[in-house]
Simulated assay, not measured.
Amino acid sequence: MNKAERVIAVMKGEKVDYVPAGFWFHYKPEYTVEEMVDAHMKLYRETGMDIIKIMQDYMYPIVGEIRNKEDWYEVSVKDTSSEEFCKLAAVIKGIRKQAGDDVLLFQTMFGPFKAASIAFGDEVLMRYSKEAPEAVEAGIKRIADGLQKWAEGFLDAGADGIYYSAQFGEEGRFSKDEWERLVKPFDLQILQVAQERENKYNILHICGEPEYEFRTHPEWFADYPGDLVNWSVKDNHLSLTDGKAIFNAKLLGGMDNKGNILRGPAENIRKEVEGILDEFGTTGIMIGADCTIQGKDIRLDYIKEAVDTAHNYLTREEQK
C-alpha cells in the first residue's frame, strides 16, 4: 500500500498494513507560495506522515460591511479569479508537484459562518443572528455560494478533498433549532462538493472556540458527510470508542493537541498512541490530534515519534 491507498482503506473500514497518522500546525499567513509549499513538504518528509493537510491561514476575502441588517443581503466572496484564491491554488499545485500522487492532499476550509465571523467580528455576527436571523441567513447563503466555488476550485487544482472545520455548535452559543437554520445548511453546501465527486473526500473536523472552552455538541454533526471525522476528545470528554457509535464514518485523532505531542518526552508519546490503539483497535482509525498542534517550539521529532509508533504498533494479539 502507498500512503493514499492506506488512508482510503481506513475510510472504507478495510484492514491496513499499518495504522496511518497525520498532524499539522499553523504557518505564517504572509508566507509566499514557495515558502508555504516548502513548509508543508518539510513536515511531510521529516515525519513520514500519511496525508498532507494544507494549512493556509488567511482571511477570507469577503466583500461588504455590516452597518445594519440590510447589509447582509449584499455581502459576497471574491471569485476564483481573485489574487487570494489563485495563491491558495498555486500552493496546492506546488505541493502536488513535489509530493506526487501517492499521498492524499486535503485543503483546509472554514465554514461560511466562520468566514462571516472573521470578516465582521463574532460580536456583530451573534448580535444580528439573534436580532435579524433572516438577514444573517441570507448573507451566509451568499457567502456559502462563493465558498462552494472555492471548494470546487481547490479540487480542480489537485486537492483530493476538503478538511472542513465545522464550528458554531459550541455549548451555549445557539439552540439546536437556531444552529440548524443558520449554520448547518451552509456547512452541508460546502461538504457536498467533494461528496458528489468521484474519488474526492471530506475530513470533518468538529471544532470549538476558545471563548466556549472548545466544548461543542459533536452529536449535532452526526449526519454530516465525512469520510473521516475528528473532534477534541479531551475538551468534549467523548472518547473515540464512544464517538464511533455516533458517526457513520471512520475516525481521525485521539491525541491531546496540547499535550505529549507538544511537550514530550518521546516515551509519553509512544504510550499515548499505544493506549489509543489498545482501546480502539487498528481498523477504521488514523492517529492524529484533537486539533491543530498549538503552542511554542513544536518539534518535528515528537510528531515523527507519534507517526512511527502508529506505523509500528502491534495489536495485543500480534504481541502474543
Results as ranks from 00 to 15, higher is better:
Glu137Cys: 12
Arg96Phe: 03
Asp256Lys: 03
Trp179Glu: 13
Asp187His: 13
Tyr313Pro: 00
Asn257Met: 12
Ile118Glu: 13
Phe120Glu: 03
Leu300Lys: 14
Ala9Gln: 15
Lys87Ala: 15
Lys130Ile: 13
Gly284Asn: 04
Lys250Gln: 15
Phe120Leu: 07
Gly146Phe: 04
Leu300Ala: 06
Val19Tyr: 00
Glu198Ser: 11
Arg67Met: 10
Glu213Thr: 13
Glu279Met: 12
Asp156Tyr: 08
Lys93Ile: 05
Lys69Gly: 09
Thr315Pro: 07
Tyr27Arg: 09
Arg197Phe: 06
Pro133Val: 04
Asp156Pro: 07
Val307Asn: 02
Leu228Gly: 02
Leu240Gly: 00
Ala119Pro: 03
Glu123Phe: 13
Ser129Lys: 02
Ile143Phe: 08
Lys184Glu: 14
Glu267Asn: 14
Met11Trp: 01
Val77Tyr: 09
Leu155Phe: 04
Phe247Gln: 01
Ala138Ser: 15
Val19Cys: 01
Lys42Arg: 13
Pro61Ala: 11
Met55His: 09
Glu279Trp: 04
Tyr128Asp: 05
Gly226Val: 04
Arg181Tyr: 14
Lys176Trp: 08
Ala289Pro: 02
Pro61Lys: 11
Phe221Lys: 06
Ile276Ala: 04
Asn260Met: 11
Ser82Arg: 04
Glu318Asp: 11
Ala39Met: 04
Asp101Pro: 03
Val33His: 02
Leu252Glu: 01
Met126Thr: 10
Gly121Glu: 02
Gly139His: 03
Ile285Trp: 00
Ser165Thr: 11
Tyr31Thr: 08
Ile303Val: 15
Arg173Glu: 11
Leu43Asn: 06
Ala157Ile: 05
Thr283Lys: 14
Ala39Ser: 12
Leu43Gln: 08
Ala90Phe: 09
Gly100Ala: 05
Asp242Ser: 11
Asn2Pro: 08
Asp57Gly: 11
Ile285Asp: 00
Arg181Glu: 13
Leu43His: 06
Val136Glu: 02
Leu228Asp: 00
Ser76Leu: 13
Lys28Trp: 12
Gly111Glu: 07
Ile190Phe: 10
Tyr58Met: 12
Arg316Lys: 13
Gly243Asp: 00
Lys234Met: 12
Asn257Lys: 10
Gln56Val: 14
Glu30Val: 13
Ile190Leu: 15
Val193Glu: 01
Gly226Leu: 03
Asp50Arg: 02
Ile303Cys: 03
Ile51Ala: 07
Met49Thr: 08
Ile246Thr: 08
Gly275Phe: 07
His40Val: 04
Ile118Leu: 13
Thr216Val: 15
Ala306Gly: 05
Ala116Glu: 05
Ile162Cys: 02
Arg96Val: 03
Tyr163Asn: 05
Gly284Phe: 01
Pro112Ser: 11
Val63Asp: 11
Leu228Cys: 05
Gly22Tyr: 06
His237Ala: 13
Ser165His: 13
Leu105Ile: 04
Ala99Val: 03
Glu180Ala: 11
Gln294Cys: 12
Gln98Thr: 14
Thr32Gly: 03
